[in-house]
Amino acid sequence: MVEMIPSVGRELLYREAINEALKQEMRLDDNVIIMGEEIAGGAGREHLGIQDAWGGPFRTTVGLIQEFGNERVLDTPLSEAGFMGAAIGASSTGLRVIAELMFVDFMGVCWDQLINNAAKMRYMFGGQVEVPFTMLTRIGAGFGSAAQHSESFYSLFSHMPGLKGVVPSDAYTAKGLLTAAIRDNDPVIYFEHKGLYTQPSLVPEETYVLPLGKARTLKSGSGITLVGISKMTWVCMDAAAELDKLGIDAEVIDLLSVSPIDYDHIIESVKKTHALVVVDEDTPVCSIASDICARVAEEAFDYLDAPPTKVTAPHTPVPYSRVLEDQYVPNVPRVVTTVKSLYEGYR
């Protein structure tokens, strides 16, 4: 059994942990290749001594081209439908492709390839084909980037039978889940949060795999279960510290996977705490948060002292102006207020 919380290792940033997983998996398996926009950068200018000009838009792929060459590290033209489809095609014919979609907001450009090919090929073809494909992409608001560069649309992918999805929340889970995603024989969407890249945490040097579809408990408690998704896990942890001062002992679960969702882990917790708040940066309608609340209501109804509740973004696009964006993303005061009102209303 792998530990879900590391006890050994050295401090790496989230982005360095992603980089380490990519390098280690590419060393272990020649079939693993990676492609995307600015993965290396300055493509085709080796003759001018230019290589790895960007190392990825957020420097998660830095150094790959030096080690693995431009046959396994492919900068692409700005053609997401074409290269994502090609990555899926290559993954179904013997390669194991990692492809990057720079921001999840651009999924519309390649959505058809993801949902009609990657997600369905194995099933439609009667199990003849495997699609060991990993798509890296980015989520998260809070950076003044407005409506087309700030979404957290993992729920849309979870809706699709055939796709798996992970939302690592720190460097340790970033490495272990990326290793798992690459080795998995199904398409996995790997959601990096822009607000976590420079967060350090303990990461073992050797490779390790964290299980897809498993959540972890970061803080145990008996008063209420808080479920965080990606960066929202840390909002839950901070809220739990505040709640502690109010005498409310919160348990915090870090979801880690958005498909499959570890309902059992959450339900076990709710059986103990009798209350649930899911904190989700995505919009609320047909969301992971609403899905978890519904599942808990169905399967743990008798254990609940209060309605399963969520703290999410509103049902609007992401606004540009700071004064609006600050209200948009769930924050500690909103979680604390929500928990307090559940306590006052139902306990």
Binding site: P284, K310, V311, T312, H315, L324, Y328, P333, T337
Partner: peptide, 26 residues
């Protein structure tokens, strides 16, 4: 902008209460 402008101009016609419903927006 006024903070309440967050909910303005999402649609021509849609109740703001529905944009906040179940979100615990402050």
């Amino acid at each position: 902008p006024e903070v309440s402008d967050l909910y303005v101009d999402v649609y021509s016609d849609y109740p703001i209460s529905m944009m906040k419903r179940g979100t615990n927006m402050s």
